[in-house]
Design a binder for these strands. Sequence first.
DNA 1: AGTCCATATTGGTCTTACCAATTTGCCGCG
DNA 2: CGCGGCAAATTGGTAAGACCAATATGGACT
Lengths: 228, 228
Amino acid sequence: MTRSHEIAGVLRDEILRGQFRPGERLPSERDLAARFGASRGAVREALSQIEQLRLIDIQPGGARIKEVNDASIAVLGPLLGLGSVPDAGLVDQFLDTFSALARFTATRAIPRITEMQRTDLLAQLDAMADDLGSVESLQPKMRAFLLTLDRIADNLVVRLISNDLQAQFVERMLLLHPRPSLKPESLQALVSGMRLGVENGDGEGVAAALDTHFLSMRALVAQALASA
Amino acid sequence: MTRSHEIAGVLRDEILRGQFRPGERLPSERDLAARFGASRGAVREALSQIEQLRLIDIQPGGARIKEVNDASIAVLGPLLGLGSVPDAGLVDQFLDTFSALARFTATRAIPRITEMQRTDLLAQLDAMADDLGSVESLQPKMRAFLLTLDRIADNLVVRLISNDLQAQFVERMLLLHPRPSLKPESLQALVSGMRLGVENGDGEGVAAALDTHFLSMRALVAQALASA
DNA sequence: AGTCCATATTGGTCTTACCAATTTGCCGCG
DNA sequence: CGCGGCAAATTGGTAAGACCAATATGGACT
């Protein structure tokens, strides 16, 4: 972690916390350098990073705060990490979005899979079916399965979105205690539902199974966050 | 446009063009400074920006190129602008993604709209219905309508994704000649389809209208790009 | 009260310098 | 010939100082 990343992190969080109003001017680079006990170069690198998050607009005369609504999606992770517990509403929006992305991937992938790919997917699902009890080992298999679908769907735009969100989200949610865990019956339904869809080349079937899975997931996580 | 942004743009495009293999080392900051006739500070700021795109990994010892698959979605715009004409496949993936995002927004927004919002939406649709002939003036109304839905759906994650993609995509596609334009009948079907959905509180109806609209759009754009 | 201009401030850029970590390349050993 | 190990060169990280052009500020003047 370099000095400029540290500084960027602090300033980013302050902006996300709303400590500056949109349109307001950020302290000058020289003032920030003094505040952080760093060189102006380090501060400039930090500001350059925050500018890429589209949280500020740097111009001769000063850097001005922008609306969070116009920011890059890269602020979502830091936004989750602001409090000691992630914001329940934002987490639900994340999961809802994941749900839509998974549905997208499934409906685009299934109609174009080859026989070999189908065999591969079925094998992965069978491996998952043997593992319903331990969420810890099912999770990575689920991710691998969705990644396979993602490769088949072959949409770079959605792939980058999914990767980005996943990276920001998973990392922050793994810290939760206690980790919510779905009932084996639900997982069983998910796996068998997807299996049926893959077998029949029914993308909508796979998507539907994912939909209900994400719905239960959202309910569960909401409950976990409420109690935390 | 500052020097560091210029340099970052050049290096970014070179990486996106595949002029470096993943894992390969980028020239040192001092060499790059010499190449661009700039100071090391300017180059460092540029590299810091490229690092935020997740195109490189900066470490003591050197900056190493990463896989484009792991990059930020902020590379999609530059990726569209690499050639004289945007890549048709990537454009289609963009539109497909827009389609899914619009569907998401519609299905989430419609069930939770208030009477006042419904009135507003219907008014917007009526204004659009009077304007089917000129694509130039319909386009912004369509965007405003989707933005209204977006505000109602109230999902920050999807909003940021949509904003981001839109900003990157629209800007690059406006340069196309000739600009593709849908037949008035199709637009008529879109507007009336959405109107029916809004009236009946039928999110799936609105989404379906959007689906068919984006399908025609994709066919049209593919044709335009093939001829360009 | 409004306008205009001099001044101070701010970002943009370059130079030079030093440190710590990594990489490189050479040497000697097995 | 290969391989381990050590020293030197290279590389990124950071700092301090300086100058310019564009912007913002404040005061003088009308």
